[in-house]
Design a protein around this nucleic acid. Structure first.
Lengths: 140, 140
DNA sequence: TGACAGTTGCGAATGATTCGCATATCCATG
DNA sequence: CATGGATATGCGAATCATTCGCAACTGTCA
């Protein structure tokens, strides 16, 4: 994330009445830098490791706030603590490798279309959805 | 569920080394009778209302056991307590009406096929998956 | 029928997340 | 660039769903 982009983002938050505090800036940085999908405790650890004094409670509150602003997404996989990721321009779904725990992102327009179609057939419109594939490497 | 079917099911459980206790039989009954998707507390309440003495802890343990036997399925929707349903012959996905909280079941072979296809393309095979559509009635 | 591994009930423990409240801090405004 | 006052923060206590420890039972199968 460029400094330019960061500035614009922070300005947008301010515009929405959300203060950009030291703690929030630190978390934005940690999340932007993450290429994986960390949970609250992990984000807290990284922020602290980066020298930011932040409490776990504030991490939780900030995550909720940033999610409400559409800046990050919350991932709730089967029974484990919630994980977070920077909100991407494009929506994507997740594939979870059961052996390694790795989370792989993917998109498929055909599936997106089908979902909308199915909902429409039953008189509904989709507000949001969740598609998770729990997978294992194919025997080669 | 016929008495015949019930007997076969209980026999199968015994065969797997799972005792069919008073409490478990009661829960099987409650789950079979449910047309909705109750959580553990609700199942406990119904079992108690039906005259079965069961503790909540046992309800939890039994649900886990029955799930391991493939008799019931666990549903974990966004942030609410887990819900349960009798394992159906056929797999199905869920649509959650955000206004009423109603859970609607549906299946679509095209989606199932696409999922398998996508996973295969990336060198994986699906162990299980989860597709939830959070919806709202279309403006009519 | 008897033995005993599998179950139950209870209450205490857990783990993730949230809350209350007193204190500290952003930042639009002057 | 100082300041007010709404917003945030930190701390520990509180919640909520779920799990556990352990002593007392009870299906099952021989």
């Amino acid at each position: 994330m460029s400094k330019e982009r960061r500035k614009r983002l922070e300005q947008a938050l301010r515009g929405a009445g959300v203060r950009v505090t030291r703690q929030r800036a630190a978390l934005l940085g940690v999340i932007a830098a993450a290429s994986d999908h960390p949970d609250a405790a992990e984000l807290h650890a990284r922020a602290v490791a980066a020298g930011a004094g932040v409490s776990l409670a504030t991490v939780y509150r900030t995550l909720t706030t940033l999610q409400a602003q559409g800046v990050i997404d919350k991932l709730e996989f089967q029974g484990e603590p919630a994980r977070w990721e920077a909100a991407d321009e494009a929506h994507h779904d997740h594939m979870i490798d059961l052996d390694s725990g790795a989370v792989i992102e993917f998109t498929d327009d055909r599936i997106e279309r089908l979902q909308a179609e199915i909902a429409a057939e039953m008189g509904y419109e989709i507000v949001h959805h969740r598609l998770e594939l729990y997978v294992r490497k194919s025997r080669g």
